[in-house]
Amino acid sequence: MQMTAAEQTAEQAEADMKQEEATPEETVKKSGKRKLVAREERATVGEMAVENPRMSCRNVDVYYNFGEKKAINNISLDIGRNEVIAMIGPSGCGKSTFLRCLNRMNDTIEGCQVKGEISMDGKNIYDKDVDVVPLRAQVGMVFQKPNPFPKSIYENIAYGPKIHGLVQNRDETDELVENSLKRAGLWNEVKDRLDQPGTGLSGGQQQRLCIARTIAVNPEIILMDEPCSALDPIATAIIEDLIDELKQEYTIAIVTHSMQQASRVSQRTAYFHLGDLIEIGPTDQIFLNPLHQLTEDYITGRFG
């Protein structure tokens, strides 16, 4: 059964209320029953590997400032096909940095070094013979703040396909623009004003425009870096619905600060802490029965 984001929100709220009803003693008893991995332990807990992964990361280290600052420490993680994987954790824990490694966006940051192996469909994307340009066309990215180009709505979508030569003439471009906007659920709102600047749309519409722009170049993987953090709850719900639909065709990795959002949209969740991948597993398990003390601390709001 396909639940809408609104229904999921309601259900989550109900679950939250139930949790609140539990007395402190019960919580202690409940957590006392399970044996949690101690806070000091930093090795990844949970099953990080999946069968036939789309992307596979092994022993990834990331340094900023030419090696002065280590941002990510020995992370190994698989991203499966057609799954939504959520990355959560307190600010500065390296989840965005990790996400930006997956399409080599970190190359644009001066002094950023990536070590280890990140492969897509078995091919290491950090190999010398890999060109970042086609890679980024395959691994699209949606950013925290909506960043439409200061061009018309039409041009915003047409830009990517044009530079990659995916469209030959005006008719094909028109069709692709319409399709992309429809898939992003924006078509009905903007079809009469395609020639107006994309920056004139509302925040939620801008973010859907950016998603439409990303899927217009037909990527295989979409990375989303806190795509809803600048949006109101209604716009957030629309985008979460969209993510649900997109996962039929794409693999999606999403960084989010909202645990409700992670639990609503993802199948697997990874918890990051100070550059370490602490725990990875099915979303239900992470939120209901975490294995690591730090994960439990974070999702119960004890810190972070």
């Binding site: 399409n103 966006m105 644009t108 340009v133 086609p134 890679l135 980024r136 066309a137 395959q138 699209g140 990215m141 949606v142 950013f143 703040k145 960043n147 439409p148 180009f149 200061p150 830009y159 990517g160 530079i163 990659h164 950016c210 722009r213 990303t214 170049v217």
Partner: peptide, 17 residues
């Protein structure tokens, strides 16, 4: 803003594009 450059790179633009 850097975000515009990021957006363009994220779509697979070359630096000159």
């Amino acid at each position: 803003p850097q975000s515009l450059r990021d957006g363009a790179y994220g779509l697979g633009s070359t630096q000159s594009e």
